[in-house]
């Protein structure tokens, strides 16, 4: 599945800091109703050194997100119960900084467009190889980092313009 503009986005956002250990820092979750797929992927990615979680339904995914801060979620669209698109909407509403990659065995343009409209950052079609999947995951993570960096920058710029008293007051309000 080729999403137009993806390369440009990649160009913009792929500013990996040299020497940084992506594997250690990135927290990843795979959501799919194929238990065996979850099993194999969890095993493989853990072996490769990634911090990976699995969830077999949309509901479970939201439960985990409630407890744990994650960077990237790989979400199957067709699942019993809460389906992928609905789960995506809820994730984006509750945790807008989490990057979501949609995964489906049933590729139609409509569902791809729907997914991207709802805030998915990528759209992949099954079957996809583990390497390709990881590449996309890392791209997504880089974007998430870039966004986080910009927010940090904006925040520190605000700090610079404020008096220390204001900063303390803001900090108190934030709490």
């Amino acid at each position: 599945m080729k999403i137009p503009g993806r390369n440009i986005m990649k160009h913009f956002f792929t500013e990996r800091e040299p020497g940084m250990d992506v594997k250690k820092e990135m927290k990843l979750m795979i959501v799919d109703d194929e238990e065996r797929f979850l099993y194999a992927m969890e095993k493989l990615l853990t072996k490769k050194g990634y911090d990976v979680q699995t969830a077999s339904s949309g509901e479970q995914c939201l439960e985990i997100l409630e407890k744990k801060r994650l960077h990237v979620v790989i979400l199957d669209i067709k699942m019993p119960g809460l389906d992928g698109l609905e789960t995506l909407r809820r994730i984006k509403r509750l945790y807008p900084l989490v990057e979501v990659i949609l995964l489906t065995g049933h590729a139609t343009v409509e569902s791809a467009v729907d997914g991207l409209k709802c805030g998915a950052s990528d759209f992949l079609m099954k079957p996809i190889s583990a390497d390709d999947l990881l590449e996309r995951v890392e791209d997504a993570f880089a974007r998430s980092r870039a966004v986080a960096a910009k927010i940090d920058e904006a925040r520190s710029r605000r700090f610079m313009q404020q008096s220390p008293g204001d900063i303390l007051k803001d900090a108190a309000e934030e709490k």
Binding site: F37, L103, G105, K126, P127
Partner: peptide
């Protein structure tokens, strides 16, 4: 595609 994905994994 679903079983294929499992096989890929």
């Amino acid at each position: 595609n679903n079983p294929l994905q499992v096989i890929r994994g």
